[in-house]
Each structure stands twice: as C-alpha cells, then as structure tokens.
Nucleic acid binder design. Sequence first.
DNA 1: CGCCGCGTTGAACTCTCTCAACGTGTGTGG
DNA 2: CCACACACGTTGAGAGAGTTCAACGCGGCG
Lengths: 235, 235
Amino acid sequence: MNHHHGHDECGAEEHAELESLVARVPIFAGLNPEQIAEIASRVRPRVVPRNEQLYGAGEVNPYLRIIHTGSVKVYRITESGHEQVIRVLSAGDFLGEKALMAPSTSDHFAVTLAESEICSLNHDDIRDYLLKYPSVALTMLATLSARLGSTEGQVSSMAGEDAASRVAAYLVGLADEHQRSSIALPITKKDVASYLGLTPETLSRRLAGFEDNGWIHQHGNRRIDILDIEALRLV
Amino acid sequence: MNHHHGHDECGAEEHAELESLVARVPIFAGLNPEQIAEIASRVRPRVVPRNEQLYGAGEVNPYLRIIHTGSVKVYRITESGHEQVIRVLSAGDFLGEKALMAPSTSDHFAVTLAESEICSLNHDDIRDYLLKYPSVALTMLATLSARLGSTEGQVSSMAGEDAASRVAAYLVGLADEHQRSSIALPITKKDVASYLGLTPETLSRRLAGFEDNGWIHQHGNRRIDILDIEALRLV
DNA sequence: CGCCGCGTTGAACTCTCTCAACGTGTGTGG
DNA sequence: CCACACACGTTGAGAGAGTTCAACGCGGCG
C-alpha cells in the first residue's frame, strides 16, 4: 500500500486493491472473485512498523493474521528464561491459528522484523469462512501439515546433528530457497543461533570455520556468499 | 473388536459396531448419525499385529489412519542414521494427514507398539468428507495446531533445558495425563531417550539419580512410581 | 527355556556452553 | 547527514554436561 488516504473508508480503487491482495494469499488461492470479495470485506489491513509486538505469551489473540509484506519472528520464552526462535514468517504466511477453535492464551511471542502489511481476520469470521468454503480449510490443513513436518525436522536435527551440520543445513536451505548463492540472513545471527539451538558464540565459530575452509564468505553482519555449496551439503 | 467372523462382509450388528466406533473418534465427534454412517461405510477397519510397520520413509501413503485401540510410534531416521522418535499416538489419534492434499512420499516411519485396531480412509474419500462436512476439517485443524504447539515445545526444551529437566518434565507429563502416581512408559526407555533427545545411558543415569533422591521408584523396565512429584516439577 | 536386545554402570573424551573482553555495525537522535 | 551509543558479533580460555565406547546383568519375547 504505497498511498494512503486520510480516512478509513476506502474508495472503489482501494477495494480492488484489497481484493487483489486477498487473491494473492496462498490459502485463498482458487476462490472465485465474489468469494474473494466477501473475504476482502472482512479483512482489516494494517501497516505495522518494525519491531512491533503483534501479541505476547499470556494474551488472548482473537485474530488470524496474514502477512502481505515484511516478516514476523515467532519465539518462545522457556521456563528457564531461554529465548527460543520458533520460525520466521514472510509474505503469504499466516499466524494466530492456534486459538482458532478454542480460544486460549498464547504461549509465544510474535514481533515484526520490518515494516509489514498485515491483514487481520477475526477468528469468528474465519470460522464462518472455513465452514462456507471448505477448500480454504483444506489448504490451511496442508500448510499446517507442512509446518509440522518442518518443526519435526528441527527436532530431529537438534537431537541428532552437531552444530556444524545444523549451520550448514541452514545455509543450504536458505540458498535453495533463494535460488542463489549470495544470501541474506532473515534474522540476526543471535536469532539464527537460537533457531538452531546454539549459542551465538558457537554459530560464530562454525561460520568462521566455514570461511577458513573457503566454503563461504561473510559480508557485513547478514550477507553470506556461498562459495562451495556441495561442501556444505556434505558436512 | 473381540469377535471376528470368518468373512469380510459384515452383518448388521457389525455395522452398528463400526458406527459407534466412528462416533467415538474425536475428529468425527459432533456429526449426526447419518453422517457417521456415511463415513463408517467408507472406513476400512483392521486389526494390526504388534510391531507391524504401517508405512516407511520414501513410500507414498494414500491413507488417513485413525487409531481405535493400541498405539503407534512415529519416528524419523536422520541423514546421519540417528533414530528420532517424533511422537506416540494412541486411541483417538490419527496419522497420515501429511499427504492429504498433495500426494508425496513420507519422510518418517510408523510402527505399532501393540496389537491395534486401526481404521484406514482413502485420502480421496477424506477430502470429499472434509469438503462436505467442514466441521471435521476444523476439528482436524485444531488437532494439528495442538500437535504443532507440542512439537514446538519439544524444540524449546531440547534447546533450553538440560537432561534432568527434560526427564522430569516427561515424567510429570505422564503422571498428569494418567492422573496417578504410578505410571507405565508407553515406549521402551531407549525410545524415551530418543524422544527426549538423549542417549539411553544419560536417561538411565538421570532416572537412577531421581531414585537416589527418593523422588521415584522403578519397577521392572517400564513401571515408575512417582514418590515426590513436586520435587520433579522443580528440577 | 534360551537368546537377543534392552538396560545399567563405569571411565575417558569431546563438543558445546559459559564467562569475559574486545571489536564492529546498525540504527537512532541530534 | 553525521556521530554516537548500545546491542550485536567475535575471539579466547576454561569448565562442565553429555556422549561415546565397553562390559556386564537382566528381562521379555519367541
């Protein structure tokens, strides 16, 4: 949304814009234009500034949120005070589905990593839509299944692989995702370390080791050029 | 199913039995009798012997399976050959939802831990039901969300808590679940160790430590009496 | 009843964490 | 726009927790 009007009531042009926004959301893909329009009418779009907390542990959060631009970090704080990054969401992802059926307090935190456009849908509304357009529910099921699979992968790797393997696998994953050898970390190295179940020190040492081996090259704090992806795959 | 007839065609009495079976499945709870009957007509119940593999990694698995009695262990084998127990399913749980939308090869293994009654539903059939009875899809969504939450908890604890905390939390979880202080491990200690991200040796040592402290008492290989649950909660 | 795998115990090792100090860069406020 | 500051990142040394390897005892399934 590059231009804002001074009032909340949107003009026809903005309705069209909102609808094309909704149409691009993966979980609404495949719906026909009037179904899109119906959903768009209930969507509350908002531009959220960087570093704003969407919700925290202990709060009741009655919204399903869909990310249009920007990115969101989801993390937990364990009983012992340890901060654990669970996942990073970006365009097309949704969050807040946990309390969709049975309202409950959240057990994690969600914070924007950059200014983001986020659409909020009330849980009651979403329930109605899912009952009305079951295909959306099936898409959500598929998405959640995939998430579950990746989280299970996180468990396996934290239990079975050593630090070097986890770091290498993470870099390879980013490279595959971006389809290029020069990648930018979506989060700070501190958060990457947390995500991988490591301390920042260990992450730093492994990356330094990879650089010594000539497998990667670090630029600034977030850019990493992958020089030998095959070597990383074999770690 | 305590009595078997020698032929596959079921009598009316077994239809009724099958329907009451379906009605007790959490994800079908709330459907009316004719909806239950419709689903029951497509269900393929089977008694699976102990230690039978339902499916393995690399296979395409076109069935959603619902466990009626018995239990099933789900695990992965990581690239480095490490066996990681993901979860243990028991009565009312389902598995095989991963490939529901987009057929894909499984990345994990499922094995029965005891003789089990398991109903199989073809993915195509299930998709039809979910489109027809969206409330079932919503229940599945809620269940998957809950699973995701618990798997995320597994990640946090493996990264942030030490061995003693994880073992204690596991015991407390079992005790809370069973509502009694004498518990039986659902899987071998070897598998418990894998589930908690530990080696069997470490698990054995922690349990021995708890016993030395007078917090638990071990009987045989699977029975554990919890003598001081508050002490375990504080570990 | 026998055997194989599970479970336990011991000892040495190693990888990661922890603590500490220093260097860097990113984002903020002037 | 630049400068400053604070959080992030790096590097070093040390300690500790868990793993690994090995041997033995036991129990449960066939």
